[in-house]
């Protein structure tokens, strides 16, 4: 693991339980943190930002997530069913969003965590996008770091991925513009200060060759070419730590922000609309290695 930094923000929230677990010497699992060198989406950012990504502020947060995973909740913890530190969940998150037979539709890790809590542990559901949910989701996703994203695209999932794609392609909001316009048509250009790239795996398969062809400078030229040639992926590196937001955030928050920015209706966290979108985004990032929590400006 990388150098761990003390995390002022979280220590207060997590309190003694967290500290006790962080201090525990036994490491059952070799948990990999975010690896900037494996994040193709970073090529469109400045040298300076990519340097920061080597030691992002999220370093150490996985330990906090682990503590929440192992935390005692009326006699049980996540580890009661999923093994010490969640060792039985390694690889599980590569399949999310995942079809749920009982619901008859796909669910997010957040939904799964909530149903474990409410149905098996007699606990309250976690509040959407609050610290504990984001942290646990990040931890469970990070258990699969280095493994290829492999969301089911056939069988019962086909229909929902199709719905997600439909939402992705549809003009919405007061600005009347679809995800695909900003993220595909405009990939490789600048919308204000943002270098747009597609949330797919364009260029990932032969990344070295693509990177070797990027112009070295001027920097603007290099970034635009990187945006055009290398998809940034999405589900593989989310949740992320975004410097602008100053904390970890899930894909659900990103999607709501993109909606809000084009002055479109914002749906609830975890609503079918966003689950389907996330399933579609996952399907076009399939094959990329999980690399959580990602880092974005």
């Amino acid at each position: 693991m990388k150098t761990r930094r003390s995390n002022v923000l979280l220590q207060g929230v997590l309190g003694l339980a967290a500290l006790a677990f962080v201090a525990s010497p036994a490491m059952a699992l070799d948990l990999k943190g975010y690896d900037a060198n494996k994040d193709p989406g970073l090529y469109k950012y400045s040298e300076n930002f990519r340097g920061m990504a080597e030691f992002p502020p999220s370093d150490g947060m996985l330990e906090d997530g682990k503590a929440l995973f192992n935390k005692d909740r009326s006699g049980q913890s996540c580890a009661t069913c999923h093994g010490e530190d969640g060792e039985k969940l390694v690889g599980a998150s590569t399949h999310y969003p995942k079809y749920d037979e009982k619901l008859g539709k796909p669910k997010l890790i957040q939904h799964q965590i909530n149903s474990c809590l409410t149905e098996r542990m007699g606990q309250e559901a976690l509040k959407w996008e609050k610290g504990e949910q984001v942290m646990l989701t990040t931890y469970v996703k990070a258990l699969s770091n280095g493994m290829p994203l492999s969301i089911q695209t056939d069988g019962p999932m086909a229909k929902f991925i199709e719905l997600g794609k439909k939402a992705y392609d549809e003009r919405i909001g007061h600005f009347d513009i679809a995800c695909k316009h900003c993220h595909n048509t405009a990939a490789g250009t600048n919308i204000r200060a943002e270098y747009m790239s597609a949330p797919d795996n364009t260029g990932y398969a032969n990344l070295e060759a693509v990177v070797a062809k990027l112009p070295a400078n001027p920097e603007r030229e290099r970034r635009l070419a990187a945006g055009a040639a290398i998809g940034s992926g999405s589900v593989d590196h989310w949740p992320i730590y975004r410097t602008k937001w100053g904390k970890l955030a899930t894909m659900q928050r990103r999607l709501r922000t993109c909606n809000k920015n084009v002055r479109a209706v914002v749906h609830d966290y975890g609503s079918d609309y966003y689950v389907n979108l996330e399933a579609y985004l996952g399907s076009i990032s399939n094959g990329m290695e999980m690399n959580v929590p990602g880092f974005r400006p």
Partner: peptide
């Protein structure tokens, strides 16, 4: 963006 016409716009905030 579609700056003036509102024809056919969906899901306006």
């Amino acid at each position: 963006f579609t700056f003036h016409s509102n024809e056919g716009k969906k899901m306006i905030r």
